[in-house]
Amino acid sequence: MPSPGSAQESAPTSRRSKITPERAQELYTAVLELLRESGYDSLTMEGVASRTRCGKSTLYRQWGSKPELVVAALNGTRRTLFSDIDTGSLSGDLHGAAQVVDAASGKDTALMHALSHAALQNPDLLCALRSTLIAPAIAAIDAMVERAVERGEIDAENPAADYVAAQVIGAMRARSLLEGRYPEDGFLARFIECAVLPALGLPAGPPASPPASGGSGT
């Protein structure tokens, strides 16, 4: 004989409509905050319910499991890092990217760190992590490089041009692994000046004028 709760579990459609888009965003934000604070393994549906004052049963009815909720949170808070940066020079664009990273205070790096191991065990989680954080950042940096080639700033045949995104994103990720800390203000800018720009045949050092955001998006 069905338990009293089974009738409710068998009819989730009517329940789902009660979570508004605004409420869903609150839940997604809480999920990502908890991930940054304690990592994927320590994240629980109970913890999300407590943080958001939402019934645990509501979370399970809406998303079914922790991995599904995390995937939904990543997709629901998709950000396009660096996409609005177009300063007219590659040096300015890359320094603009460094400013974005500094402004984020390591949040995206912390999130990638929290999810990296778990994502290797969960294909859906890995796909969501790549599509929401990694792929947009790569696409935006690749667009910066393409614009620089079109302007004649760098040689299209320079092999280093193919690795700019890997260098920038790798620097964001590697410091937490190698030194146990996230990139502090100025770290990525210094890395760009000392490693990325010289490899591209561009003068090391910051651009002549402060980078500005605006112009075209990707």
Rank of each mutant, 00 (worst) to 15 (best):
P2H: 09
S3P: 02
Q8V: 15
P12K: 09
T13L: 14
S14F: 15
S14P: 11
T20V: 09
A24Y: 07
A24K: 11
L27P: 06
L27Q: 11
Y28F: 08
Y28C: 06
E33H: 09
R36H: 08
S38A: 15
G39I: 06
G39M: 03
D41A: 14
D41T: 13
M45S: 15
R51L: 07
T52G: 15
C54S: 06
S57V: 14
S57E: 09
Y60L: 13
S65D: 06
V70A: 05
A72D: 02
N75C: 06
G76R: 07
T77H: 09
T77A: 14
R78H: 15
R78L: 12
R78E: 12
T80P: 06
L81S: 12
F82L: 10
S83Y: 08
S83L: 04
S83N: 03
D84L: 14
D84W: 10
G88W: 00
S89H: 03
S91W: 00
S91E: 06
L94P: 11
L94A: 07
G96Y: 00
A97V: 07
V100D: 05
V100L: 06
A103W: 00
S105R: 10
A110W: 00
A110P: 00
M112F: 04
S116T: 13
Q121P: 03
Q121T: 10
P123D: 10
C127E: 04
C127W: 09
C127H: 02
A128F: 00
L129A: 12
S131P: 03
S131C: 05
S131V: 07
L133W: 00
I134R: 02
I134Q: 02
P136W: 05
A137I: 03
A139G: 08
A140Y: 01
A143T: 07
V145N: 01
V145H: 01
E146M: 13
R147H: 07
A148G: 05
A148H: 01
E150I: 14
R151N: 05
D155I: 08
D155K: 08
D155P: 10
N158Y: 01
N158L: 10
N158S: 10
A160D: 02
Y163D: 05
A165I: 08
A165Q: 03
V168L: 13
R175H: 12
R175Y: 02
E179Q: 14
G180T: 07
G180H: 06
R181H: 13
P183N: 06
D185H: 15
G186A: 10
G186R: 04
G186T: 06
F187C: 04
L188Y: 03
A189I: 03
A189S: 14
R190S: 14
R190H: 12
I192F: 00
I192W: 00
I192L: 02
I192G: 08
E193F: 05
C194H: 11
P198S: 10
P198N: 07
A199M: 03
G201S: 07
L202Y: 01
L202T: 08
G205K: 02
P207S: 10
P207H: 06
A208Y: 04
P210H: 01
P210D: 02
G215I: 09
S216H: 11
G217N: 03
G217K: 06
